[in-house]
Simulated assay, not measured.
Amino acid sequence: MNESGKILVLNYKFNNTETLLALLISGNRLKKAKVCGESELMDIYKGKVVSVSKPINACFVNYKDNKQCFLSLDEKKDLKAGDEITIQIVREAMGSKLPTATLSLSIPGKYLILAYNKPGVNFSGKLSMKEKHVLKHLLSETEIFTERENSPFGVIIRTNSASLTDSDEIIREYESLKQKMEEIVSYSDKRTCYSLLFKEQNDYIKFINDAYESEYDEIITDDPEIYKSVNESNPTKSVRFYDDERLSLSKLYSLDSKISEALGSRIWLKSGGWISIQSTTALTAIDVNSGKFEGKNKNQSEMIAKINKEAADEIMNQLILRNLSGIIVVDFINIKDNEEEKEFIGYLKELARKDPVKCEIVDMTKLGLVEITRKKISKTLKEQFGYETD
């Protein structure tokens, strides 16, 4: 099987229920996964403030079918009950927590994010200084830079822009997003309360757009309607319709075992060690074990360094795959040398910078536990599959 990355979009039977999945597979390993459904994330609504709570510096807004969301008063101090406002859902409801909304509207594309009332041009922190310099030179004479004076629109150049060799595609996207935002702003005051003003692209199109172009070379689906939809979204990679009746797409890529591992608590490492992942509502605890590592009788310091480094790589992969967020505590194998500890923390921070979601390596405690925080945006993979957090 081809070792290059593939994005699969297919209906998969899980617990006797058909589930639409979008998956990124690379080197025969599952790297990212999304259960596709009716998500409200990034949708824009006309809402109404129903109550204001000064002690928590927030208000509660009704926005759809008596659904309610949370909005911080840091965005607008003088809001009061009865005010009609335009909001965007920026974090899904999780457990007993309401969705989180913002007044700062933005529309994401593949190459850029267009923001309203946030003028200026910024670059994704995932881009290198060289990539930022090349893109600035490529775009400096385009509308993205020349329209900034007195413009209400701001632009964030996304990581995928690094693959561009000319400005045509990103300018087309900029014009399209700008037109959408102008329409939203112009008719928001005229629409009735609880109206949906903007619907984000369906989950599998968003999954494709959010994937780094360097991660995959082909999109594959076995559903004719999805095949048509993906092609109509102007993908930059080839789209293949899979129709082999002898071997299903899920069997071809051994999805049963891959998904089972992604939902399980133990992951084996090539060295013979393993990591254990346990999530609760408060935090995620990850334990690194040397297991049956073959180098036990060799230099112990080298053994620990090798297992910890391999575990660090796998843990960062698992955070992305499982969409783990909030407080994460990792018990690596004890590092006794201070310089080796500093070097290892530096290595972890380099890995964290590659995460598409904001991820911070806080520190290593005196007990040798590494503290990590990762921004909460949407449900974990287990929650998407219907499991409750312990």
Score class of each variant (00 low, 15 high):
237 K>M: 03
61 V>H: 04
156 I>Y: 03
169 E>R: 11
159 T>G: 02
169 E>N: 12
197 L>N: 03
318 Q>P: 12
168 D>Q: 13
317 N>A: 12
286 I>E: 01
353 R>P: 00
382 K>F: 12
200 E>R: 07
189 D>V: 05
44 I>G: 02
105 L>M: 02
365 T>C: 09
254 S>G: 13
270 K>R: 12
68 Q>N: 11
276 S>P: 00
284 T>S: 09
40 E>F: 04
293 F>V: 11
243 D>Y: 11
173 E>L: 11
369 L>V: 09
127 L>W: 02
301 S>D: 13
144 I>H: 03
338 N>V: 13
258 K>G: 02
329 V>F: 08
341 E>M: 13
313 D>W: 10
28 N>C: 00
338 N>P: 14
21 L>H: 00
97 K>W: 05
203 D>H: 02
238 S>F: 09
359 C>A: 13
55 P>A: 06
185 V>Y: 05
136 K>E: 15
217 D>W: 05
313 D>Q: 14
262 A>L: 01
128 S>V: 07
235 P>T: 12
12 Y>F: 15
386 G>I: 12
366 K>Y: 06
149 E>D: 12
178 K>M: 14
62 N>R: 14
245 E>Q: 11
325 S>Q: 01
255 L>F: 02
356 P>S: 06
87 I>L: 02
364 M>L: 05
155 V>R: 03
205 I>Q: 01
255 L>W: 01
348 L>Q: 07
364 M>C: 10
7 I>N: 10
59 C>A: 00
93 A>H: 04
177 L>Y: 08
155 V>G: 02
325 S>E: 00
338 N>W: 10
60 F>D: 05
198 F>A: 13
380 T>Y: 02
159 T>F: 03
386 G>Y: 13
192 T>S: 15
100 T>H: 15
366 K>R: 13
23 L>V: 06
344 F>N: 07
353 R>G: 05
168 D>V: 12
5 G>P: 03
355 D>S: 15
353 R>T: 14
158 R>P: 00
219 I>V: 14
12 Y>C: 09
102 T>N: 01
308 N>M: 07
189 D>G: 10
9 V>H: 06
25 I>C: 07
87 I>C: 03
58 A>G: 11
333 I>E: 04
196 L>T: 12
230 V>D: 06
172 R>K: 15
371 E>G: 09
15 N>E: 15
156 I>F: 06
300 Q>L: 14
330 V>G: 10
218 E>M: 07
247 L>T: 15
253 Y>D: 08
266 R>P: 12
313 D>Y: 14
198 F>V: 10
43 D>M: 03
162 A>V: 04
286 I>Y: 03
